[in-house]
Simulated scan of single mutants.
Amino acid sequence: MTTTSTDSGRPKARTGGEGGSRRRGKGSPALASERREHLVRLAAELFAEKGFQATTVRNIADEAGILSGSLYHHFDSKESIVDEILSDFFRDIMAAYRAVIDEGRDSRATVAGLVRIAFGTLEPHRAAITVMQNDWNYLKGMDRFAYLTKSEDEVEKMWVDAIRAGQEDGIFRADIDAKLTYRMIRDTIWVAVRWFRPGGRLDAQGLGEHYLKVMFDGINTH
């Protein structure tokens, strides 16, 4: 599907049946999937910018250059869109976390790997992280989002187990609370999504490496 740019720099759907639309056919599954993915990307940017609760179906449709009714051909509500955004985020990050843990390295290397994965999500999953920060309490009250708490509990267990293993091995201090430590790490990483921008002085990888230096080595010279 061809796109043009809005004044804000986000892609906006161009009306009319040209290019790929003619090649694939207006009602083809491939084109429908492409349109759906495009709508998800547009909605994600709006959720990140305006907040999920403040974004309306009309806002999403206007950004896509379609009528609100046309949006309902792909999604029954904006909750369905954010559901897709959040479930994709948890699927990706949990798979990446498990891969790091399954490598079976020492606890410091495992925790460092988890930190790098978390920072690596700031760009591709910016909308999901922003929505979780701004709208977590609102969303988790809905039955369809019950998996959010379950998924977060699973993620927390991965981190806490890795930290406690390090304590048992004598790599990490025994006098720190593993669960509190995880939550402090999580929140300091996620809050970076508010100011981190691709193309800045540090990319996500560089930011993660800097964070690991401070976390493991501190800021003292001795």
Rank of each mutant, 00 (worst) to 15 (best):
S5I: 07
T6Y: 11
T6I: 09
G9S: 11
R14W: 02
R14Y: 00
T15C: 00
G17E: 14
R23F: 09
R24E: 08
G25A: 01
A32T: 14
R36F: 05
R36C: 03
R36N: 01
H38E: 12
H38L: 03
L39T: 06
L39S: 08
V40M: 05
A43G: 00
A44Q: 00
E45Y: 06
L46K: 11
L46S: 05
A48P: 01
Q53G: 09
A54C: 06
T55H: 13
T56H: 04
V57M: 15
R58V: 09
I60P: 09
A61K: 00
L67V: 00
G69L: 03
S70C: 00
L71R: 00
F75P: 07
E79W: 10
E79H: 08
I93E: 11
A95F: 04
I101C: 04
I101H: 13
E103L: 04
G104W: 13
G113N: 02
V115F: 00
T121A: 11
T121C: 13
L122R: 01
E123T: 12
I129H: 05
Q133E: 04
N134Y: 14
N134T: 15
D135C: 02
L139P: 08
K140V: 12
G141N: 11
D143Q: 03
K150R: 10
K150I: 05
E154Q: 03
V155T: 10
W159I: 05
D161G: 13
A162P: 02
R164N: 05
R164E: 07
G170H: 02
R173M: 06
D177N: 14
K179N: 11
K179M: 15
L180I: 15
T181N: 09
Y182N: 11
T188Q: 04
T188A: 14
F196N: 05
R197Q: 11
G200K: 08
R201T: 06
L202I: 09
A204F: 05
Q205H: 13
Q205M: 04
G208A: 11
G208P: 06
H210W: 15
H210G: 13
V214K: 06
F216W: 07
F216N: 08
